[in-house]
């Protein structure tokens, strides 16, 4: 069993994470956040919870999932805390623990990286199909949602913006070997 506190684990898994202990609770991050209004805790609130060791509350919060990675908080933080990177760490930890309240975001990221791992390139048409088919199947039975989805796809194709043939890189073996090695190292050393 790991004896490190939750706070220490977050710090360790984030490059530059040790600056988190300098947080002044000034709230510049929450004030700069374009999606802050929809979060259940602003980043400042999350850092207070982290400091208090409220692991469950932090990992089940929707805050990291509403982070749009715009780095507005990171550049404005007077203590140079890599806030966006900490949000990435919290997402990874929530996935790793298999508990998060806001599943859409993770379910969008997973098929996206699935294509990257299989082909070396992203593939929008396949991603949209897979995401809706497996993670939001209810959309197919709601006439309004289904119509909207179909219109979106048709319009994208009409403007020649949704190629249906995926591209694949030449040396896929090389890429997959690198990714597998990285995952093994991450399992042993980052999430140990």
């Amino acid at each position: 069993m790991n004896t490190q506190t939750f706070f220490d684990r977050v710090v360790e898994a984030t490059p530059g994470g040790e600056r988190l202990s300098r947080c002044l609770q000034c709230g510049s991050c929450g004030g700069s956040c374009p999606s802050g209004a929809d979060m259940d805790h602003t980043p400042r609130g999350i850092f207070a919870l982290l400091d208090g060791g409220f692991e469950e509350d932090v990992l089940s919060s929707n805050t990291p999932w509403y982070c749009v990675s715009c780095y507005a908080c990171t550049t404005r933080c007077p203590q140079q805390i890599p806030i966006t990177d900490i949000m990435y760490t919290l997402k990874q930890m929530a996935i790793h623990r298999g508990h998060y309240e806001h599943p859409h975001a993770a379910k969008f990221s997973e098929p996206f990286i699935g294509f990257v791992e299989q082909r070396g390139r992203s593939f929008e048409a396949g991603l949209a199909t897979r995401y809706h088919l497996f993670h939001r199947p209810r959309d197919f039975f709601q006439p309004m949602q289904f119509f909207k989805m179909g219109m979106m796809g048709a319009n994208m194709m009409r403007h020649n913006r949704l190629p249906l043939r995926p591209k694949t890189i030449r040396e896929l073996d090389e890429l997959q070997a690198i990714l597998n090695e990285a995952k093994a190292i991450a399992d042993q050393e980052v999430y140990a």
Binding site: A13, S69, Y88, T89, K91, Q92, I95, A105, A106, F108, S109, E110, F112, I113, V116, G120, R121, S122, I169, R170, E171, E174, L175, I178, L179, E181, A182, K183, I185, A186, V190
Partner: peptide, 25 residues
């Protein structure tokens, strides 16, 4: 030659080290 996807913001959300390795390739 033979570049690969950078992983956008999605790979970082799942696992940081492979995301960096993907970009570093």
């Amino acid at each position: 030659d033979d570049w690969n996807c950078c992983g956008a913001t999605e790979y970082m959300s799942i696992n940081r080290l492979p995301a960096y390795a993907l970009i570093a390739r």
